[in-house]
Design a protein around this nucleic acid. Structure first.
Lengths: 158, 158
DNA sequence: TTAAAGAGGACTAAAATGGTCCCCAATAAA
DNA sequence: TTTATTGGGGACCATTTTAGTCCTCTTTAA
């Protein structure tokens, strides 16, 4: 299923709401209301986003959360990384020492290529892209899908 | 962490071994031995790969498993899909009806763009790419990373 | 006929995930 | 200076998912 976690999903929804007023400060509870997600859960998500410097927080009355950067500069990769840690499809891409197959694994290094490709894909799309509602292409997508290209050149030196 | 499951990981390792002799038939137990993975687990993985037509099986003595296509034609996407079902980062990309945020989610359609990009990345790399051991670039990667490009064009019609 | 393979699926233990709660710290306003 | 409002940090537990094992049945070559 290659899923992102629900919390990451929530994060993008929440940040999507914040992106509508990028310099405004939002209380966690208000965001919970407008996103239709439970209060404590929204808090948990926002705390993680603060740690990762995706949003800034202010305490006290009239406090709340605010985007740390413009929606255009906030990549989906950074949001997912905030909630799930480093983006890597396999354990050994992060820490090889735990891999028990290491000796018989002849596939290792090549994962890195895929990881980079996926990271690039998530880095290339920003909160601004996600937050845009309709007015878009006839197929329902704002970003023309045909314009997303992925072209690895294979084995050129073999 | 945006991981693939261990079983998908095993699948790629197992298929990597099979790719060394693409037309040979391998018994599940032999593959377990050479991959350093438990026998029953290897069987489980191979059964899923048969269902998805990634490998073919033959019963009876001298039976076993064989790649259904050449390693060059076997994409990583098809392998992961065999073990984890459709590749989609969010639930609602597969089935919108279960989404409780639907009404307040202003981010929906745009996931599709990311999903396609990731699918493209996994489709573009094949078993042949993964199975190649060393002889490669100075950084340890066979496929030059610089040659992997991802270029969404943003909001051109706005 | 037999033995060596895979097919299908039930079952369990362990790990990850999601969600809630509690108490502490900061701070604006009364 | 007090109080009320907001976030910070982390513990905790229920649930779900995942991984791994096992059992019985089917196929088929020798």
């Amino acid at each position: 299923m290659l899923r992102i976690s629900k919390l990451s999903d929530y994060a993008i929804i929440i940040l999507g709401h914040m992106a509508k007023a990028p310099s405004q400060t939002f209380a966690a509870n208000d965001l919970a209301g407008s996103a239709g997600i439970g209060g404590p859960t929204v808090s948990k998500v926002l705390k993680a986003l603060v740690k990762a410097h995706v949003v800034r927080s202010t305490r006290g009355p009239k406090g709340g959360y605010q985007l740390a950067q413009t929606p255009e500069k906030t990549s989906i990769a950074s949001i997912i990384a905030a909630l799930e840690g480093p983006i890597a499809l396999t354990e050994c891409s992060i820490d090889l020492s735990h891999c028990e197959q290491a000796s018989s694994c002849n596939v290792r290094g090549n994962w890195s290529v895929i990881n980079r490709a996926i990271h690039a894909a998530l880095e290339a799309v920003t909160l601004a892209d996600m937050a845009i509602t309709p007015p878009m292409g006839s197929d329902g997508f704002h970003i023309p899908v045909k314009d997303i290209t992925f072209q690895p050149r294979r084995n050129p030196e073999q």
